[in-house]
Design a protein around this nucleic acid. Structure first.
Lengths: 276, 276
DNA sequence: CGCCCCGTTGACAAATATCAATATTTGTGG
DNA sequence: CCACAAATATTGATATTTGTCAACGGGGCG
């Protein structure tokens, strides 16, 4: 007997115990209908916090499956400023490109120690030929990422700083939590600094600080030294000005087909209530 | 003999003459390798300028293929403000959802008279079973949309008003032009108002106006009453602060496989030079 | 123990929004 | 072709939000 509780954390190579399998490309495997992409996997990659999976403008042939850790997709400006485009959580597919010659338009950085498994493009093509549902799954994942981007666009384009920061924290909380259904968490460790929050919301680190102090003063959320505590879930939902329709992409993408599914609203309510 | 030049404009139902076929889901057909989605098409839809394809929060079972006209994907805020998420040009796939129960997170409005063909979800699944490449094509299209969103996020989050407006105009010019390779245009009719530009760039219509007047004063671009003229392409590229890596998603997605392809830089240069 | 990254705070500057009035263009009907 | 209405663009004065710069504090980690 090698382990009990922490197995999925310490042995990322083992597909059967992979934590990322709850979501992402391999989610279908859980339904016992489809062959696991395991056979098509080539190598694993481990990075330390701060290292890049790849930089902007590179080409490479395949996709990375984020197994453990958080990553940030970002672009850099000439003057050194940065825009974070997306936070990738375990299960994320990283680096899919329309064709093998295309260069990436963004860089990807590990926000904490992270592990990936890599599927070469050729293998992906073979995998899809064998099992077209995988390609539809991939399309769904890309589509969900797009929806997340749409949410961020609305947030950055039309919301106030207070609303943007609130929305980001709520989003990450819900996305993180939806990976462990039934697991109640009151407090969440996030590998974020106020600077990173600013880079994601189109604000300055300094201004994020001001907003966070306000939110704490008002008893809504507390974020200090990478520790998030949600003090008043209902108020947070309210101040984040969430369009309920935008919620769907935050929770895990389900396989199409069987089963009833609760709408997004109760899920949000449950998710946030759990933290109170 | 029914026609000569304008055939593709007036007979949208005819797949063989469809203008959208240069891009989008049916692009593979041109390579004569794959069966046309035509057999799986269900119905056509025609809209007048200003009408909605669908609103936020709706569900529907299938995808729309934009054949003719421009559309805007948008979200609305409580107070009536709007954020435009994406402009869809002919060839765009509209309304793909991860599963059949998902509700849309955005609305889609026709910016001019537009026609679509509709492919029901069931047919799409059958089509993919028959030809998995279509699913990969769909994933590529979603991925490209995501990349476009990433570009907009960087623009809205970190660029000045002047840069944002310049970049949007340049993007639309290049995307439009890449649909007619070899066709030189000096002047482009766009179904946009300054208000629309503001909604897309996270600015106010009034402020967009001020920026446009500046750009005209500086001899860079002229945009008045839906007519875009690029006066100095090089300056425009410069002021738009385009990250060259972000350019790839602007030009048509090519089918993977054969053929050499020029990098994005010369394409941009050619595209913009043509307008001078 | 001490360093360094991160967070905190204040004064001030810059960019953009808001409000309101007026001008121009487009499209429509006669 | 003209007149008119509606939509869109233009401009100025002022308000608000957010950024910039600079200094200081505090906590974790070697």
């Amino acid at each position: 007997m090698t382990s009990s509780i922490k197995r999925s954390i310490s042995i990322p190579v083992d597909c059967d115990a992979c934590a990322a399998r709850v979501d992402g490309l391999c989610a279908l495997y859980r339904a016992n209908v489809l062959p696991l992409p395991a056979r098509f996997r080539a190598a694993d990659k481990r990075l330390k916090a701060g290292e890049d999976v790849f930089g902007a403008g590179e080409t490479f042939d395949g996709i990375y499956n984020l197994v453990e850790g958080w990553v940030a997709l970002y672009t850099l400006l000439d003057d050194g400023r940065r825009q974070i485009l997306h936070f990738g959580l375990p299960g994320a597919v990283i680096g899919f490109q329309p064709d093998s010659r295309a260069t990436t338009t963004y860089g990807v950085q590990a926000l904490m120690d992270a592990t990936f498994c890599f599927i070469p493009r050729d293998n992906l093509v073979r995998l899809v030929r064998e099992c077209p549902e995988i390609a539809m799954r991939l399309a769904s994942l890309m589509s969900r990422d797009r929806s997340l981007s749409f949410g961020h666009l609305t947030s950055i384009g039309r919301h106030s700083a207070r609303e943007r920061v609130s929305q980001l924290l709520l989003e990450l909380f819900i996305r993180y939590r939806s990976q462990w259904p039934g697991h109640l968490i009151e407090e969440l460790r996030m590998p974020l600094t106020q600077e990173l929050i600013g880079d994601a919301t189109g604000l300055t680190g300094v201004h994020v600080n001001r907003v966070l102090r306000e939110l704490k003063r008002d008893g809504i959320v507390e974020f200090q030294y990478r520790r998030l505590r949600i003090l008043d879930p209902d108020k947070l939902v309210q101040v984040a000005k969430i369009d309920p329709h935008l919620l769907a992409p935050w929770v895990r993408t389900q396989e199409d087909g069987d089963g009833t599914r609760a709408g997004p609203h109760p899920q949000l309510v449950r998710a946030t209530r759990a933290a109170a």
